[in-house]
Simulated assay, not measured.
Amino acid sequence: MDVASMLQVSVLLFLVAALGGVTMAGIRFAGKHNPPAWLAMFHGLLAAAGLTLLAYAALAEGVPAMAQLALLLFLVAAGGGAVLSLRYKWNNLLLPAWLVIVHALAAVLGFVLLAAVVLLGADG
Score class of each variant (00 low, 15 high):
110 G>A: 10
93 L>M: 14
44 G>D: 05
37 A>N: 11
8 Q>C: 00
28 R>I: 06
54 L>H: 04
92 N>P: 00
77 A>K: 05
44 G>A: 14
77 A>P: 02
3 V>E: 05
96 P>W: 12
39 L>M: 15
13 L>F: 11
40 A>M: 13
77 A>S: 12
64 P>D: 04
55 A>M: 08
25 A>Y: 08
93 L>N: 03
113 L>V: 05
20 G>W: 10
29 F>L: 15
54 L>P: 00
60 A>T: 09
81 G>Q: 02
112 V>S: 08
108 V>A: 15
74 F>Y: 12
115 A>H: 05
93 L>G: 00
46 L>F: 08
41 M>H: 15
92 N>T: 06
57 A>W: 07
108 V>G: 08
14 F>T: 08
84 L>H: 02
64 P>G: 13
28 R>V: 04
71 L>H: 06
9 V>C: 01
2 D>F: 00
75 L>S: 10
18 A>Q: 07
60 A>R: 13
55 A>R: 04
71 L>P: 00
117 V>M: 12
3 V>W: 02
124 G>M: 01
23 T>S: 14
62 G>Y: 08
95 L>I: 01
10 S>M: 09
37 A>G: 00
78 A>R: 05
42 F>D: 01
26 G>H: 09
109 L>F: 11
75 L>Y: 03
62 G>F: 02
70 A>Q: 10
83 V>W: 09
102 V>K: 07
70 A>K: 09
118 V>N: 07
98 W>L: 10
107 A>P: 08
73 L>R: 14
6 M>I: 01
